[in-house]
Simulated assay, not measured.
Amino acid sequence: MKIKQIDFESHQFGDYCELMIVPELIENEQSIYSSSSLSFYKYAKNQIHLRFTREPDILLEQRSIEWLGPTLLITTTALTQNPELVSITLSVISNYITDFFKGRKDPDIKFSILIQKSKTKFKKIDYEGDKEGLEEIEKIIQQLKD
């Protein structure tokens, strides 16, 4: 399991107040998302309030034995309004992996979470490992909130 944390500043995400899926790239005004973003959105939207920061224009076709998940943005407002949001979101990811890979060995998963610390300051958490390691992500995010 690998967890990498990076602090960064951005004015791009200051207007959002929900759990959001962020594009992997924006090129020529087109939003490019990982191929799993759309299927994860369809799976998760009935369980958690989730939106795209921009409507998907292009999906990156990523073929791998790993699950390459979307980049999620968790805003300060969303965490304040729903303290259980991180736990619920990580549970939805775990259930999605179980359902999507039913009958096969659970894959390693890779995805990123952006945690808003202030209007312009964020922490990016890159996760790579099995779904059991998602508990560590929750602990890291909980430490950021305290």
Rank of each mutant, 00 (worst) to 15 (best):
P70D: 02
K102H: 12
T75A: 07
Q143A: 13
E66I: 03
S118Y: 05
L68M: 10
D126S: 14
Y96I: 07
I109A: 00
W67S: 02
K102F: 10
G103A: 13
D106R: 11
T75Q: 12
I74A: 03
Q142R: 15
P70G: 01
G129N: 11
I109V: 11
T77K: 10
R104L: 10
G133M: 11
F101W: 08
K105Q: 07
A78K: 04
R63W: 06
D99N: 15
K139M: 12
I109S: 04
D99C: 04
I97N: 00
G129S: 09
K124R: 15
I113M: 14
T71M: 08
T71V: 15
L114Y: 10
L114C: 03
L90E: 03
T120F: 09
T80S: 15
N82P: 05
L79F: 05
T120G: 05
S64D: 14
I137T: 04
D126W: 03
T89W: 04
E136D: 14
K119S: 13
L72K: 05
E128M: 01
V92Y: 01
F111M: 02
L68C: 08
K117Y: 05
T98C: 02
E84A: 15
Q81T: 11
I97D: 03
D126E: 14
E128Y: 11
I109P: 00
I113Q: 01
I93V: 13
T120C: 12
D126F: 07
Q142M: 11
V92W: 07
L72F: 15
R104C: 03
P107A: 01
V92M: 10
